[in-house]
Amino acid sequence: MLELSRIVKSFGSSRVLDGVNLKVDDGEAVCIAGANAAGKTTLLTIAAGMQKPDSGSVAAEGKLGYVPQEPALFGEMTVRDHLRLWYAANNLPGKLLFSASAPETLLGLHLHARKRADRLSGGVRKRLSIACALAGDPPGLLLDEPFTALDLQTKTDILALLSDLKQRRKGLLFTSHDPSAVAAAADRVLLLRDGAISGEIRLAGEQEDRIAQVIALLSQT
């Protein structure tokens, strides 16, 4: 689904990424973990094609969906209008909106269809941002801190959607500081430190064991 090879990126004299190699297969969920300012968001935006690396290559099977940490929504537009806009941008008919298997339905957005974005809770704004990124049925999804500051129900619904996407062979690459969410969503966790991947684990076992494995990796930061 996605492969990054020898990615280098500097801002002025500061080298943020120093030869990062990363691969995500179809139906696989990979989490990039690391301390603040480790370069996780920079790596995601390069993977999304929003930013060019100084050197290295990005290979993806089509245009990937991207969900930023802070939803980029138009305050005066309703939930329905946001989705119509994204479906139209991907040359898909609006009649697909709120079908039984549509991401926006699985995320419960039919309950908020007529609400303006500036009147939505943070959790619903996150749901809408994810649904918009999926409107074009991309081969994979990139998510920057998708579980931050969410209520339990929203987190549960997003985890369920990510599981559904994996079953449909969508690749997922995300960042997170939430060990329980990482343990529930990821197949592999990569530790980004000093501009390079310094550690990697493949999660196994029950949820409690997986959480312990994530915490052990994060402790290396």
Rank of each mutant, 00 (worst) to 15 (best):
L2K: 06
S121M: 08
E70R: 14
N21Y: 12
S5Q: 14
A35I: 06
P138W: 03
S99I: 00
E28G: 06
A37T: 14
R127E: 04
E70I: 11
C132V: 02
A113L: 07
P138K: 02
L142Q: 03
L92H: 07
A35M: 11
E76I: 06
L165G: 05
Q51S: 11
H112C: 11
I201W: 10
L97N: 10
R188T: 13
S163K: 15
Y87W: 13
L85R: 05
A33K: 10
G136S: 08
L172V: 05
L128H: 10
G199L: 04
I32M: 10
H112A: 14
R202N: 12
S13Q: 13
A102T: 09
A149Y: 05
L109D: 11
S55Q: 14
D118H: 13
L203R: 10
A89R: 11
C31L: 09
Q69N: 10
E206D: 15
C132M: 15
I197S: 07
A184Q: 14
G108C: 09
P53I: 03
A29K: 07
A89K: 03
L97S: 13
L217C: 09
M50Q: 14
V79K: 12
A160H: 10
E76R: 13
H82N: 07
L44Y: 11
A113H: 08
V24W: 12
K9E: 10
L165N: 02
I158A: 05
I7F: 06
K170W: 02
Q69V: 04
R210S: 10
G122C: 02
G65W: 05
N91P: 00
G19E: 13
I201R: 15
W86Q: 07
I211S: 05
L107W: 12
E76P: 00
L191Q: 11
G122W: 08
L172M: 07
